[in-house]
Amino acid sequence: MSALLQVENLASGYGRSQVLYGMRLRIDAGQCVTLLGRNGMGKTTTIRSIMGMHPVWQGQVWFNGAEIQNLPSHRVAQHGIGLVPEGRQIFPNLSVEENLIATAADRHKKRVPWTLPRIYALFPRLKERVGNFGNQLSGGEQQMLAIGRALMTNPALLILDEATEGLSPLVRQEIWAALALLRREGMAILVIDKNLAPLLQLADHHTIVEKGQVVWEGGSEALRADPETQQKYLGA
């Protein structure tokens, strides 16, 4: 099976400080993959490099068979990647509905595209807050809005950087339930998060990063059965 996203031998950094050393990553259509590791190990830099938000020094990024490294971010998004960034980054002075429609598109003519009614069915809280501005929402509602905004671009791949960071346990459950539904519907997902237990339930494959390099890869059963790896690289 050809990969939906393929990252090979990726090198990148900031100024003279190299962060990524030969990073690799693969996601097939409909697959949920995690990128795990302690803070400062290169996870967000990998995402930013994929999304054209940070220059790639070396290596290749393919999406649906097209090379996309160093394309501008809007071109990467047009290829079919939706990003839910760390910190949410919603538009604070736009209403919930305006946030959702601001970047809405269906360039690849999905059989069942994401629309406002579908987003409100996935996250009923957003429908209740439809007229509220972004800065009037709770952190959990902002994260739901960020996910909804990414889905409204009708991506083939959804990337979430720190999916549930700083959220209450109840809101986390809502986010995990929504991601599980997306996965059942065939959405490919790449997720970064520190909550390992729900990731072991959700994901097909896990990639652990240490100092900008892949140090472990495998399925949920293998990672669940390897507490030494969890402790060594995740502090679990």
Rank of each mutant, 00 (worst) to 15 (best):
N70G: 11
G37L: 02
F63V: 07
V56P: 11
R38L: 12
G134P: 13
Q142F: 02
P117K: 03
Y233C: 05
Q78D: 14
A121S: 12
R88H: 00
A77H: 04
V171T: 07
P113K: 08
C32M: 13
Q58A: 10
L160T: 03
S138Q: 08
L35H: 06
P227M: 12
L160D: 04
A236P: 07
V209M: 14
N70P: 14
Q143T: 12
L158G: 03
E174K: 11
E128A: 15
K232A: 12
E185T: 07
Q230I: 14
K211L: 15
T115Q: 11
S95M: 06
E221Y: 11
L196F: 06
W62I: 04
A236Y: 15
M1E: 10
I50P: 11
G52I: 04
Q60G: 05
G13N: 10
M187T: 09
L145R: 05
P85R: 02
H79F: 11
A180T: 15
L158F: 02
D193T: 01
N132P: 01
A222L: 06
E174W: 12
S17V: 12
I50H: 06
G131A: 12
T153Q: 13
Q58P: 08
K43F: 13
L170Y: 08
M187G: 00
R224H: 15
R48C: 04
L100D: 00
I147D: 09
K211A: 15
V209G: 09
Q6D: 14
M23R: 04
M152C: 10
V214Y: 06
G37E: 01
H54L: 15
L36H: 06
E86V: 00
V130P: 01
M53E: 15
Q78V: 00
M53L: 15
Q142G: 06
M187N: 02
H108A: 03
K43P: 09
E210W: 09
I159R: 03
Y120R: 03
K109D: 13
Q230W: 03
N154L: 09
V191K: 00
G37K: 00
L223Q: 01
N99S: 05
G65Y: 10
L234V: 05
W114K: 01
G166Y: 04
F91A: 08
R111A: 15
F123L: 01
L35T: 10
A225S: 13
N135E: 04
R26C: 12
V56G: 07
G235T: 10
L36F: 07
L181T: 13
N154M: 05
L4T: 06
Q69E: 11
Y120W: 14
R111F: 07
W62C: 11
N93I: 04
W62G: 08
G42W: 02
V171H: 03
V191F: 03
W216P: 09
T115F: 11
M144E: 10
I119D: 07
G30L: 08
L94F: 07
V33M: 00
P92T: 00
P55A: 15
Q142E: 12
G82N: 05
G30E: 01
A163V: 04
G131M: 07
Q18H: 05
I50Y: 07
L35E: 01
T229S: 09
R129A: 09
R172H: 10
Q6V: 01
Q89N: 15
S220I: 10
A236V: 14
R183C: 00
V191W: 02
R48Q: 13
L71S: 06
L25E: 00
L190Q: 08
M187K: 10
P113W: 12
E141Q: 13
G40M: 08
R172Y: 03
A150N: 14
A197Q: 14
H54N: 08
V56E: 13
V130L: 14
